[in-house]
Design a protein around this nucleic acid. Structure first.
Lengths: 237, 237
DNA sequence: GCAAAAGTGTTAATTCTACACCCATGA
DNA sequence: TCATGGGTGTAGAATTAACACTTTTGC
């Protein structure tokens, strides 16, 4: 290593690097966001995104997974880097660059008993509390991204249980886009992708007739993921 | 400020934060990337993306603009955050988190005489040299993003001079997507957006007949930018 | 007058949208 | 038996894709 290069590096200011997760869930009716009360601001009762610090041996991605695991005890969560926020004023305590990740989880899998150490709660997207720092803009960017992503890729499945019905899926898309969809057009378009496998089993309890369960064709799903365009049925904004 | 909060912040490791720019240009035939030889690695003759360090008083965005200005002397460049790269091994000198921005500039505006301090050169996307660190993956991600973005938004104009012809624009799109387009369908779709204003002037020299120049309707362009969908004519991948 | 690029229209195929009725079941 | 949500088909409209000839002008 040349000495002048090392010196050039050493002359630079270093910064704290944080990760924040925008965690979406779906309860069958509404789109939800998982928020925590962090120790940091406990006395102010300020809700915030789940977050944490990057450790020296971690990549951004693995730090983000770790932090998510700490809260939910879940692994294999759909996680995608959203944007990095670094304005000098964003954290009044000390300058921090925060890399925001957006996560989709199945609410049923989330066991709130496990992580008692965090005071965590699902909030309807319609009734979000005041958020810490610039977390509200992170959420805003995340919902935009979710809309785009869900319209182009079959990402919605990540928010549902393994077995789901078409009406459930439609409700999810309606929640994401904040609009009503025509069920005939929706199911036609959906089934035409051949990503769904119809099961023999029917959903019980919710409706009298019961809707058939479907699961997703994993193989096709992985294969098509990046070439899957215009998924969103027509009559959404 | 509560003391325990401050302590929690102070216990954290800090990191270097860098910015790297993937700068695209278009010379009328090919899509190009602007690379520099950084002082860092000069003896190895390694090309790299233009980059620099974030300063304590800057946002990521403004640091990125500043660095781009240092190289090109241009302001008002199309600049968009792409992704943040932070694997522990990415910079062997010292752990650095790098926020990558992707930039579109008009090659004619770029005056290589101005920034003699950098050894900079345009490279065809087909013939990129070996790049520093993880810069090759940044470029790969950027080209993917450019393709998506150009298909959904009228972003291509950023790469062209103020006055351009339709055949020029078509060549640009063909370069971005690496495919041929049908000129009849292309110009129909393009003109149907009403984003172009036909000028009286014709391009001289390139073809015998000469093609009409167009400029973009700035007002509509700004307004439509985020709602402009499916711009790409049909017969591109 | 001819070579080279510019410019322009039509048709068939596909996809999208709007819309309404019957079905199965539990209460 | 009736109320509730599940499931399905069709026709008109709009968009897309494929395709070829005429125009202009510098050489």
């Amino acid at each position: 290593m040349r000495l002048d290069i090392l010196k050039q590096y050493q002359a630079q200011t270093k910064y704290l690097v944080a990760l924040d997760s925008i965690i979406f869930g779906f309860d069958g009716e509404e789109l939800k966001l998982l928020l925590v009360k962090r120790g940091i601001e406990q006395e102010h009762h300020t809700w915030s995104l789940m977050g944490g610090w990057m450790q020296p041996d971690e990549s951004l991605e693995s730090a983000s997974s770790r932090i998510l695991f700490e809260l939910t005890n879940l692994t294999d969560i759909y996680l995608e880097q959203l944007h990095t926020f670094g304005s000098p004023e964003r954290d009044p305590v000390e300058r921090t660059v925060s890399v925001a990740y957006f996560a989709l989880i199945n609410v049923e899998d989330y066991d709130h008993k496990i992580s008692k150490s965090y005071e965590a709660q699902w909030f309807s997207m319609q009734e979000l509390p005041h958020l810490l720092f610039d977390h509200a803009s992170m959420v805003e960017m995340a919902i935009q991204h979710l809309r785009y992503k869900a319209s182009q890729h079959p990402i919605g499945f990540e928010l549902l249980p393994e077995k789901f019905t078409i009406p459930q899926l439609q409700k999810l898309y309606e929640a994401i886009f904040g609009t009503d969809l025509d069920k005939r057009n929706f199911s036609r378009k959906l089934l035409s992708t051949n990503l769904l496998v119809k099961l023999d089993e029917k959903q019980k309890g919710y409706s009298k007739k019961g809707a058939y369960f479907y699961k997703i064709n994993e193989e096709k799903y992985r294969k098509q993921f990046n070439t899957f365009l215009n998924f969103l049925p027509g009559n959404a904004s």
